[in-house]
Simulated scan of single mutants.
Amino acid sequence: MNSRFLRFSILVVLFALGVAAQAGAVEYSDVNPKASTISFTYNQAGSRVYGTFSKFVGDLEFDTRNPEAARANLTIDLASIDAGSEDATAELQKPAWFDTARYPQAIFESTGIRDLANDRYLITGNLTLRGVTRKVDVPVLLKAEGGVGIFVGELTLKRNDFKIGEGEWADSFVSNEINIQFRMVAPQR
């Protein structure tokens, strides 16, 4: 076998592998809020409580070939909270908690995304809640199904870090740890 043919064959194989890798890459954008969910759990007086937020807007630009260049933003309408009962839902909108009259939204803006392999990513960003901004790390699993990307993750926030549940609520009646779960659905581009 001559060396020119061998070099040509190697180049063809490398090109084919590059094209195959490019073909496996997928780009996702714009979160579909009707197909997506944000929920939370916490402990209150020893019982587990579950709640949701029904109104939010997500903006996403994500390319599996270059996840480090991706960006993700999420704005949650805090008045859309459902804490499982009318009393709890009304209480969480008051000044001691979310104070939705002064701070109607929670905003997350990504500052970096790291590929952890096997469709797992770590999204780092700033979360602003009640006028307080904190850096958070959000582990995410990407599942591709039927032309959409489903970004699933969860993180634990400490409500005291954001001055949520002040005054009489600052004791341990309501847990300091709030577990946030999300499922963001975004179409392929």
Score class of each variant (00 low, 15 high):
residue 84 G to T: 06
residue 94 K to T: 06
residue 114 R to M: 07
residue 60 L to F: 10
residue 142 L to Y: 09
residue 49 V to I: 14
residue 90 A to V: 02
residue 115 D to G: 09
residue 68 E to P: 02
residue 68 E to Y: 01
residue 157 L to Q: 15
residue 177 E to M: 10
residue 27 E to S: 14
residue 78 L to H: 03
residue 13 V to N: 12
residue 13 V to T: 11
residue 53 F to Q: 06
residue 175 S to V: 01
residue 161 D to N: 14
residue 118 N to E: 08
residue 117 A to M: 07
residue 13 V to Q: 12
residue 31 V to S: 00
residue 174 V to Y: 12
residue 148 V to Q: 09
residue 171 D to M: 09
residue 118 N to I: 00
residue 126 N to K: 15
residue 18 G to L: 14
residue 100 T to A: 06
residue 58 G to E: 04
residue 47 S to I: 07
residue 34 K to A: 12
residue 60 L to D: 14
residue 166 E to C: 00
residue 74 L to C: 03
residue 5 F to Q: 14
residue 163 K to F: 12
residue 127 L to S: 03
residue 58 G to S: 05
residue 123 I to D: 04
residue 122 L to T: 03
residue 99 D to C: 04
residue 30 D to W: 05
residue 73 N to M: 08
residue 187 P to F: 11
residue 39 S to A: 05
residue 31 V to A: 00
residue 55 K to M: 06
residue 110 S to L: 10
residue 95 P to I: 00
residue 67 P to L: 13
residue 42 Y to A: 04
residue 122 L to V: 00
residue 66 N to F: 00
residue 111 T to H: 01
residue 86 E to M: 07
residue 168 E to W: 08
residue 1 M to V: 15
residue 29 S to D: 13
residue 89 T to N: 06
residue 124 T to M: 10
residue 100 T to K: 08
residue 89 T to G: 06
residue 124 T to P: 00
residue 3 S to E: 07
residue 94 K to A: 02
residue 13 V to E: 13
residue 140 V to M: 10
residue 62 F to M: 11
residue 110 S to M: 07
residue 18 G to F: 13
residue 6 L to C: 09
residue 99 D to H: 06
residue 145 E to N: 06
residue 113 I to H: 05
residue 107 I to F: 11
residue 122 L to G: 01
residue 70 A to N: 09
residue 67 P to V: 14
residue 79 A to C: 04
residue 42 Y to T: 05
residue 15 F to E: 02
residue 89 T to R: 07
residue 133 T to V: 09
residue 65 R to T: 04
residue 22 Q to P: 00
residue 42 Y to S: 04
residue 120 R to C: 02
residue 27 E to L: 08
residue 67 P to M: 13
residue 11 L to W: 11
residue 76 I to V: 15
residue 87 D to A: 12
residue 55 K to A: 10
residue 23 A to V: 13
residue 46 G to K: 08
residue 163 K to E: 15
residue 50 Y to L: 13
residue 22 Q to H: 10
residue 30 D to T: 13
residue 50 Y to F: 15
residue 6 L to N: 11
residue 30 D to L: 07
residue 33 P to L: 02
residue 60 L to M: 15
residue 121 Y to A: 08
residue 78 L to K: 05
residue 136 V to E: 01
residue 75 T to D: 04
residue 150 I to G: 04
residue 12 V to P: 03
residue 165 G to C: 04
residue 4 R to P: 01
residue 169 W to Y: 13
residue 3 S to L: 08
residue 183 R to W: 03
residue 186 A to Y: 10
residue 106 A to C: 05
residue 130 R to M: 01
residue 40 F to T: 08
residue 10 I to T: 15
residue 10 I to A: 15
residue 163 K to T: 13
residue 75 T to R: 13
residue 44 Q to S: 15
residue 40 F to W: 07
residue 101 A to H: 02
residue 13 V to H: 13
residue 184 M to F: 15
residue 167 G to Q: 08
residue 132 V to Y: 05
residue 115 D to S: 09
residue 64 T to R: 13
residue 43 N to H: 10
residue 176 N to K: 09
residue 68 E to F: 01
residue 76 I to N: 04
residue 150 I to C: 03
residue 121 Y to K: 11
residue 73 N to Y: 03
residue 61 E to Q: 12
residue 100 T to S: 10
residue 16 A to D: 00
